[in-house]
Design a protein around this nucleic acid. Structure first.
Lengths: 192, 192
DNA sequence: CATCTAAATTGACCGTGGTCAATATTGGAG
DNA sequence: CTCCAATATTGACCACGGTCAATTTAGATG
């Protein structure tokens, strides 16, 4: 017989998530230490790893949840009619993704999928983001020679590229917003 | 007076690099342990960190050197005349970049520039790669509405995207070569 | 209620990257 | 050659993520 999940399991997990969120609110993602989290949650270190495969898995969950919140905001917006509007709509999400170098690294690591083949929260948000962009492109005056899904993949590729260059000392003179617009214009409205 | 770099400094660094390369040849990049390297080099652990800021800096150097070797090969090639040829020309490099998930992660982390603002070997190779691609695009029958430099940036963005999806369980059914061709065709030869 | 098993929790322990005050070595100046 | 200061090396030590055998607890069953 398979026993149901015990009550305390949910409680402990919630305590861990709350503690982690508290630490992050105070000191940022990079500063989060597993020891600090279990201390605040009032559990042993081993318990942490009984609930999360590793520290990265917790980050995946927390950052994924945050991205989802931004996607909620993006989805509530009307479909952008211009490249500029599209870029602007994506900026709050991009701002979060770049709040810390560490956060961006975690996102990149999980954006495809974990090496171990199962899709985590962040990977899910990339799927969702592609869907949102695809919907945007449905009835817009952009290029029609390639499917909207492919266009959306390109939008993601350029979003990542624009963010990467934000952290690059050679290229951080241009505003991210402008760079993204340049990319998206060239990608979505080619003038050949 | 500034004293010149001592002889032993060069010797020790060479010993460390050789030892690291040997470990990697035997067991791969991810399996490399600093302790193993200093053991083989016959120096103390502290010496390692006197020569390299951290383990990542050594990886940056070794992987950057390897990428440079592939770029040498790419530069020796005649400029590709079709998307297919271009994709093919980039495949050896891509194959190396994806030889280990860990290697790709290191490359991504360093592709822009280190957080601490100085450009490392891998970041340099990305600059060089962009130059090579820009030269390729100079006299090709691709789009002319945007500068070659911007096209080259896009080629890099799509290369990274194609590689990322190779590690993604949802998308690894399509051959990388084909995916990259699809991206590059849509990017370099829009048919609007 | 007492019993029993699967599930959850514990914390001592480990592996490995990284630090730093103490020590040893180099190589130029006198 | 001797002296000396700049430079390189050392290794004990720390930080922190992660493991696992032992222990405790939940909650179903009779």
């Amino acid at each position: 017989m398979v026993k149901a999940v015990q009550q305390r399991t949910l409680k402990t997990r919630a305590k861990l998530l709350d503690a982690a969120q508290a630490v992050i609110s105070e000191s940022g993602y990079e500063a989060m230490r597993v020891e600090e989290v279990v201390l605040r949650a009032g559990v042993a270190k081993g318990t942490f790893f009984a609930h999360f495969k590793d520290k990265d898995a917790l980050m995946d969950q927390l950052i994924g949840a945050e991205i989802d919140r931004y996607l909620d905001g993006i989805e509530a917006l009307p479909a952008p009619k211009t490249i500029s509007e599209m870029s602007e709509a994506m900026m709050p999400l991009i701002t979060f993704m770049t709040c810390e170098r560490y956060v961006f690294d975690v996102i990149l690591r999980h954006s495809g999928a974990a090496a171990n083949a199962d899709i985590g929260p962040i990977a899910m948000t990339f799927g969702r983001h592609a869907e949102v962009v695809t919907k945007w492109l449905w009835d817009q005056p952009f290029r029609k020679d390639i499917p909207a899904e492919l266009q959306a993949e390109g939008v993601q590729a350029f979003m990542v590229q624009a963010i990467s260059l934000m952290f690059c000392s050679l290229h951080n003179s241009i505003a991210p917003h402008e760079r993204l617009e340049t990319y998206l214009t060239a990608w979505l409205m080619p003038a050949t």
